[in-house]
Amino acid sequence: MDPKEIKSTVSNLEKSTDDVTILKLLNILNDGVVPTEKLLRETKVGVAVNKFRTNGNSEINSLVKKMIRNWRDIVQAEKKKKSGSSSSTPSGESANSSGSASTSNGPTGKFHSGPRNPKIDGINTTLYDNGTRNASVSALYTALAIERSESGEHILSIAKEIENEVCKAEYMAVNDNYRNKLRTFTMNLRNKKNPELRERLLNKKILPSQFVKMTPNEMAPESLKKEIEKLHKQNLFDAQGATEKRAVTDRFTCGKCKHKKVSYYQMQTRSADEPLTTFCTCENCGNRWKFS
Rank of each mutant, 00 (worst) to 15 (best):
R200M: 13
S138G: 08
T108P: 01
A48P: 12
A145L: 12
S91D: 12
N287V: 00
V166P: 09
S157F: 11
M187N: 14
I158Q: 09
E244V: 00
N180A: 15
P115E: 11
R133A: 09
L63Y: 06
R251C: 01
V34A: 13
L23P: 01
K205F: 02
T243N: 08
G32H: 03
K7F: 00
C280I: 00
L140Y: 01
V49P: 06
P90K: 06
R270E: 13
E163T: 09
A242P: 00
L140K: 01
D273Y: 07
G106N: 12
R251A: 07
N61T: 11
F52M: 05
G109P: 02
R179H: 12
F252H: 11
S88N: 12
G131R: 12
E14Q: 15
N175V: 03
I162P: 13
E222A: 09
I206S: 04
V45M: 09
K81H: 05
I120L: 14
A48M: 10
D73W: 00
T184W: 01
L231W: 00
V174H: 08
A77L: 08
V45A: 15
K261P: 05
N284A: 10
T36S: 15
P195A: 14
D73F: 04
K213E: 09
P90S: 00
I68K: 05
F211M: 06
Q266Y: 00
V64D: 02
S209Y: 12
E244Y: 08
I155M: 03
L29D: 02
K15C: 09
P216K: 07
S113I: 00
G131C: 11
S271F: 12
F291A: 12
E59W: 04
R190G: 05
S223E: 11
M267N: 14
L39K: 06
K119F: 02
K110T: 02
K181P: 11
L25C: 14
Q210E: 15
W71V: 05
G84D: 13
R270V: 03
E78F: 03
S151H: 08
I146N: 04
